[in-house]
């Protein structure tokens, strides 16, 4: 059972090809690491899959819905965390979660319970009424993830969720991702940290808009005859 099926997806800006005919599949409940250098086309791909960007050609099925015909249904079933922190800094933690939860149509009472539950597990209950502006970046990222998960999406897209975050929070963040994946949620994550890539069940590597490799970390390492994903990355990007 696949959560995401991408077929010949292309995105061109005039003559520049940002995403060059990529195809891949992501299994349900998988942590799928989407790697690549800056400008390789990762964010462009994520934005197309989330319905934020119009593909030039090709198609995809996300959460069982056709991207071209039914992107409105896709939106109800995905969570998204953009590269740039994009919750409202001038609202409190609670207000942000309340806003997004309401927009997804979660009934009032259930929403309240869910918000406190997730703030509890983030150990941020005390900060519920503080402005988001006032909390550290690591907390913001965890909050953004929890907010993206409020409506219990089938798939969550995370665009460099841990960039600029300290190693301890990164570890905690990945623990959250494992827990979430164990509940059957598909996690589609991009990262620049190669140690994080080792935690993924499956990884793919993009370079110049093309998908160069796809497989489990151990498969790829033995195939390319390297010891770590970091080495693998060097090989692919420099090629």
């Amino acid at each position: 059972m696949y959560s995401i099926v991408v077929e010949n997806l292309i995105k061109k800006y005039n003559h520049f090809v940002a995403v060059d005919n990529i195809s891949f599949k992501v299994k349900r409940g998988e942590i799928f690491g989407f790697l690549g250098a800056n400008g390789a086309g990762k964010t462009t791909t994520i934005k197309m899959l989330c319905g934020l960007l119009q593909p030039t050609s090709g198609n995809a099925t996300v959460a069982g819905y056709d991207l071209k015909k039914d992107y409105k249904s896709i939106k109800k079933n995905i969570g998204y965390m953009s590269q740039r922190f994009s919750l409202y800094e001038d609202l409190t933690l609670y207000e942000n979660m309340q806003l997004f939860g309401t927009v997804y149509g979660i009934p009032r009472k259930i929403l309240k319970e869910r918000i406190y539950e997730s703030l509890d597990s983030l150990q941020m209950t005390e900060k519920a009424n503080s402005l988001v502006y006032s909390i550290p970046l690591g907390w913001k990222q965890k909050l953004a993830f929890a907010t993206a998960m409020l409506h219990h999406p089938q798939i969550v897209f995370l665009d460099e969720p841990t960039s600029g975050v300290d190693p301890i929070v990164r570890r905690e963040f990945w623990n959250m991702l494992y827990e979430t994946a164990n509940k059957g949620v598909t996690i589609f994550v991009t990262t620049h940290y190669m140690d994080e890539a080792e935690y993924c069940e499956k990884i793919s590597m993009m370079s110049d808009g093309q998908l160069k490799l796809i497989g489990t970390p151990s498969e790829l390492k033995s195939k390319m005859n390297v010891d770590s994903i970091a080495e693998l990355f060097q090989k692919i990007v420099n090629r």
């Binding site: 989330c50 319905g51 934020l52 409105k72 939106k75 109800k76 995905i78 998204y80 953009s82 740039r84 922190f85 994009s86 919750l87 409202y88 800094e89 997004f100 927009v103 997804y104 149509g105």
Partner: peptide, 13 residues
Amino acid sequence: ELGTIEQINVTPI
């Protein structure tokens, strides 16, 4: 500019 609109745009709003 702040990018918050993107978070709104991925919702079914």
